[in-house]
Design a protein around this nucleic acid. Sequence first.
DNA 1: CGCGCCATTGACACGAGTCAAGACGCGTGG
DNA 2: CCACGCGTCTTGACTCGTGTCAATGGCGCG
Lengths: 225, 225
Amino acid sequence: MFNSAITQDLFTDCLTPKELAQFEIETTVLKMKKRQLVFSENGIAFGCYILLQGKAKLFKTGDLGKTQIFQLCCKGDLFGFHPVLNNRKYPDSAELLEDSELLFIPAAFLLQLLKSNNDLCMAMLSGLSTEFEDFLCQETMLAQKSVRERVCTVLYYLTAHYKNGNIEVSIPLSRADLADLCGTVKETLVRVLHDLKEEQIISTTDARGTILLLDVNKLKRLAEV
Amino acid sequence: MFNSAITQDLFTDCLTPKELAQFEIETTVLKMKKRQLVFSENGIAFGCYILLQGKAKLFKTGDLGKTQIFQLCCKGDLFGFHPVLNNRKYPDSAELLEDSELLFIPAAFLLQLLKSNNDLCMAMLSGLSTEFEDFLCQETMLAQKSVRERVCTVLYYLTAHYKNGNIEVSIPLSRADLADLCGTVKETLVRVLHDLKEEQIISTTDARGTILLLDVNKLKRLAEV
DNA sequence: CGCGCCATTGACACGAGTCAAGACGCGTGG
DNA sequence: CCACGCGTCTTGACTCGTGTCAATGGCGCG
């Protein structure tokens, strides 16, 4: 959950050597700073992006201005392609969580590839369907689970993004970002984290509030209630 | 919102006459009764369906057993194709809200069409992307709006499904189904409806609880808060 | 050294879920 | 034709989770 279903493997797996060569030519590497917006809601989609290095969050802003994060992107993830495919404006925004390196794929080139390469199309369809599954889970979770359960669920799934080394998982997201992932507010999130800390399930080491997962199994159990 | 992005137009628009002829042969018409399940979570996807007549709800069951409706299908809608595309089990369930007539499309045939017809692929990609947009809206709404706002939002968007005649919109969903659409419980939904009735925004005529929308504009305003 | 951002905590109010009971209409069967 | 029973809708009382507002603490950066 909260994980990209489509990565750059899509291209490395599906493109012919000739297409890959053209891919090199048509795409552009961009270096961008933490907190920069890659694109934003209602913007025109000139193309899409692969995250070569760094991390990003994808979010949508609700009517009241509150943001809801629905995906975290890691190295290799492809994002921002939906409006290219259906020829609309961006329904969401992308912001970098770290200094990052991006590969920009122009819309016209992506469409050209898809039109000429059916394998790529099929792989894309498959990826979009998996993304759909993920969204179903997210939506059901947000609609039905308590904040405590949502926090546990989110922390648990963040394992996939931030496992450094073997056992320990440290999560460098800000409290505000975590709250936006869980569909709650900062204060409530902090309280839940406080409780989980007392229950020895997580710990926070430094002052920045980086979270260490101590007992992933217990976390998973709390998430699945 | 809550509307299918992909309809049978996909096939009528993209298939060649020859393919359409084969489509006739490979597909099967099914007649099913209200409340029957077309498919259910974790089931194997033998194919997908077009709703020729009737209505259906698509939903996912959360960990606790509560159901969350995420889409209503009307005449012409295509559904149940995601697991065909990514070769997994159904992540959701489909239940008929009326006696209905379905067209069954075998998985292998759909895949064959997609592989041989790039236009179909591209149209499908576009449809899936639009579906993605819809989900973003739904998820953000569920995570951020109050129940009252959600109810107004849902009622407003149901206009598209149930406009009979010109102005009046009558909604024949059960209270339980409406609650499952709004991400709340029956009792809370009823109370909100009660209030909206007092405010002259809706009215309920018959004993079955069919809802009539009296003031769609006011409803829209309340939804957008 | 001090300003400012972020995390944390407290007090408080209110929205929304749960439990329980009643109303209402419909269909079935006597 | 009427009565009973079942399912759905409705309402009430109550509790508790969660959001809001406000203040404090801690650390880093200029």
